[in-house]
């Protein structure tokens, strides 16, 4: 029943998914970019600088979502010792760090023309920086500690503790006075972003998610090959 979860079966599927994403990626990217940069209207107040949001917001979402995945997998891995979960969280982490950094950098590029400053130590931005720090620590422990079991334990604890930061980031704009604006897209209730701007935002999100999937699958494949290579010696 759990045949599908065997690495060798997953491996065949990874190849297919990678090929599928590769075949549609550039067409989608072109559509998303043309909507984000040309066809979507400027904002009534921010003008064209609103277009930075089409990268900034999906990047921040991906940063948060992948840390949530890593934390949950790490908790399960810490308790039940599932080797596969370790491989998955290890393969997600670099993408998450990259997109968190992209969110921070594009945010400060947006902040300069709109707020009038590149950086503000407000709750949202600071907690996002702390998220990047947790990613960094997570990756660093796995790189630096050579004893795999020990590295696994410590990085799992780091991810679990860092998980507390996720709701803080989400609600920082509501709990405290921040320079950062509150969320425009709400899970419940009406969003305060017009449909003509929501569309390119979701398109860009789709493109970046596909990119993440591509990188994740390639990294995961690398990890599987690495393990199989070690097994080869024992065969």
């Amino acid at each position: 029943m759990f045949n599908f979860f065997y690495n060798s079966n997953i491996f065949i599927w990874i190849e297919r998914v990678i090929n599928f994403i590769n075949s549609i990626f550039f067409a989608l990217l072109l559509v998303a970019l043309s909507f984000a940069l040309i066809f979507s209207p400027p904002d009534y107040l921010q003008g064209d600088s609103v277009r930075i949001m089409y990268i900034h917001v999906p990047a921040a979402w991906i940063g948060l979502a992948s840390f949530t995945c890593i934390a949950l997998l790490s908790i399960l891995n810490f308790i039940f010792k599932v080797k596969n979960f370790k491989l998955i969280s290890k393969s997600i982490a670099p993408i998450g760090l990259m997109f968190t950094c992209i969110a921070l950098v594009t945010g400060s590029i947006w902040g300069q023309p709109t707020w009038g400053t590149f950086w503000a130590w407000d709750a949202r931005i600071t907690s996002m920086l702390i998220l990047a720090l947790f990613y960094f620590l997570f990756i660093l422990t796995q790189k630096l500690i050579s004893d795999e079991d020990k590295a696994n334990k410590i990085s799992s604890i780091i991810a679990a503790v860092g998980f507390i930061n996720i709701p803080i980031i989400k609600y920082s704009v509501e709990w405290w006075n921040t320079l950062h604006q509150p969320a425009s897209i709400k899970i419940t209730g009406t969003s305060t972003i017009h449909a003509s701007m929501l569309m390119p935002l979701l398109l860009m999100f789709l493109v970046l998610i596909l990119y993440c999937a591509l990188i994740f699958l390639m990294k995961y494949k690398t990890e599987i090959i690495r393990i199989k290579k070690n097994n080869l010696k024992r065969l």
Partner: peptide
Amino acid sequence: LIYMDGYGIFVWSSFVLTFLV
């Protein structure tokens, strides 16, 4: 499209930077 009412440098730099990375 390039100038974007003076916001061009900010918009283009963030897009180019992201896709380069």
